[in-house]
Amino acid sequence: METQSIAVEREKLLDWYRQIVLIRHFEERSLDLYHEKKIGGVYLHLYNGQEATGVGAVAALQPQDHVITAYRDHGIAIAKGVDPKYVMAEMFGKKTGTSGGKGGSMHIASAEHRMWGGYAIVGGHLPLAAGIAIKARYLHLDEVTLCFVGDGASNNGYFHEALNLSAVWNLPVIWLIENNLYGMGTAVERASGQVELHKRAVGYGMEDGGRIDGMDVTVVYDTVKQARDFVIKNGPILIESMTYRYEGHGVSDKIFKERAQEMAKWRDRDPIDVLAGHLKTMFGDDIEHELEQIRLKAEHTVHEAIEFAEQSPAPTYEDLFRNVYVE
């Protein structure tokens, strides 16, 4: 590799490291804040463990591309470029949040980043992804829609209807299943007849993008980058990224801790360690100093985000009635 391209590669990997570490720290602190009752409500679905999938997939897109996901959305919003302080403020229910405090943890969106939101009805965002992709075909635009899909969502009717429609209309959608092995508490093999979820592509006459290692950001990036070229030319693709969440389905999950052995196995393939391993292999152990700086920076960024959220005002009575309709 030439010096210049090595430097580019180095910066790219460090940027992913930056994002993954930031999301990890953001999620771990969010859980603390929930227990401290600073983040209210009953829902908080954390992304720690799954960061490599979100960061790698989003990094493979062009700025004009669209991202949409379910309720495990904080990490993906941050990966798409949304400032963590606005995400945190949303989770605090503050006026400065991404949704003015009206959406909460499960509804993080940023129109300017083409992050079309987290959606809390399982599978409900899948036809929306198809609809966003209609526009690209309708106006002949070089834009793809990346739709994150939980393994659980692959069993409801929305999955079937949206994937079939996307195949019939050749829509430029990357359907990326994040298979974290459980839909709430129910294991994939207890919920899906075909446990290799990517194989469902065949049933829709759609490109089967295969099953990939979702703990390695470089694998996810390479796969989605190729997929982007494919869907623009040919129509949708279905990819299954194998990953694991380190916390429960949500904060109400009391049974995930029974899976400690399984968890330990996945933690051996932690996205942060896997990427640090790549960096050290390519650039030597000395890079650890830089990684340390990145981790400190992430702590600082999250600290600032929390301060911002704490100091932000709550929405007002006027806000309660605002934006029900376009007036």
């Binding site: 899948l126 036809p127 198809a130 609809g131 966003i132 209609i134 309708y138 929305y158 209807e161 949206a162």
Partner: peptide, 28 residues
């Protein structure tokens, strides 16, 4: 066909895709 679209028998997808297309700037 680009402006008059037959769909499969998929009411969830018809309504849901209309939502997405409308959000993206079309008027389905």
């Amino acid at each position: 066909e680009s402006r008059v679209k037959d769909t499969p028998i998929s009411e969830m997808a018809i309504a849901g895709a209309a939502v997405g297309a409308a959000m993206a700037g079309l008027r389905p």
